[in-house]
Design a protein around this nucleic acid. Structure first.
Lengths: 189, 189
DNA sequence: AAGTTTTCTTGATTTGAATCAATTGCATTT
DNA sequence: AAATGCAATTGATTCAAATCAAGAAAACTT
């Protein structure tokens, strides 16, 4: 949590008052491995700052799970689309490793952003980053072939391969676990 | 423009005052075929309501263009990520058919949403819809095979095939024009 | 209207990833 | 430590889409 608050103070020039308001709203929660944080169909009523651990966000469509994203310590997790629109989430979010979370409930978030300019700015940036991320991901899925997507991920986020089960990584890359396994032997040995 | 204002009045219960504020801020502009509305690298400083015509938003990466989305009359176009963050746009937006636009500049948008609750609500919903749309698209690109993506698009947005050059549609679907052509003969004849 | 360019189609071939099928490895449980 | 179940690898085969290569058909230009 301190890391989070420090980032906010530095990045958004948040005041003491704002920081303590934020701190008071955050409740510590723990998840074991493979526990559900948000189930698709439910409305997302909370966001979490991940202090330790890793999580994944995925579509659990009838036939197969599709892994959309991974989250590690020092990032904020939640279904923004559902959280903002208060409509049922299309995605499920679960822990991968055991997690220490600092949870913010929607009412508190709404109060905080309504009353504190720097926190409003922070919230806007969370949304912007999500928009940028999905825009890039869309383009990558359309224009980069699977093998290069693998190479890019290896280069940009090597820890994904160390901490995330590979069949989830395969799903994230849009390939089968077999193909991922072959890429690994092809490029690592 | 009237269609747009009517929608806003009905959906967001905007008052007379709010509607006329919005109306005053909108400037009519016309685009010929294949004219640029926003070039990648530039900051997106305006949004447009499309009154007539069609547009496309795409990544113009070095090797190939990747078409991310199409827009038709009665929708709002712009790079939200760039518009909100005021960072250079990753995407380019051009007209496909000749367009009649009603353009809103950023300063005006910011003033309108700061001063009018119903317009703020509208802006939030524009962002939410974008988040939902990209979330779904991501999942579709990962979990639906190209042929089914084609069939879904045929079913959900048949006008795309009538009004958009097919090589753009192919790019949107993540396939080559040749493959799209084969799907068409396979399913239509 | 003739010519030029762009878009779309059709066919032959290649290629890369999925699928099918076992096997091995690893970790959790008892 | 043995047993169970899940995860990852490896090999053989199939299949779907890309690529390569012309042509045909529209759509602009002059």
């Amino acid at each position: 949590m301190n890391q989070f608050l420090f980032n906010i103070e530095r990045t958004f020039k948040a005041s003491e008052v704002e920081l303590s308001a934020l701190k008071n709203a955050m409740k510590e929660e723990h998840l074991k491995r493979n526990q559900v944080f948000l189930k698709s169909g439910q409305v997302c009523t909370k966001l979490a700052f991940i202090s330790e651990g890793s999580m994944r966000l995925f579509y659990d469509s009838p036939n197969k799970e599709v892994c959309n994203d991974f989250f590690f310590e020092n990032s904020i997790v939640g279904s923004l689309a559902s959280f903002l629109s208060q409509t049922p989430s299309l995605t499920t979010i679960t822990s991968i490793e055991p997690c220490r979370l600092f949870v913010l409930h929607r009412d508190d978030v709404m109060n905080l952003v309504a009353n504190h300019a720097s926190l409003r700015k922070m919230a806007d940036i969370v949304v912007q980053e999500q928009l940028l991320r999905t825009e890039k991901r869309e383009a990558a899925l359309l224009s980069v072939n699977p093998e290069d997507r693998f190479k890019n991920l290896m280069e940009e986020h090597p820890k994904v391969f160390k901490r995330i089960p590979l069949h989830y990584v395969a799903s994230y890359l849009g390939i089968t676990p077999e193909t991922l396994s072959r890429y690994r032997t092809k490029f690592l040995v």
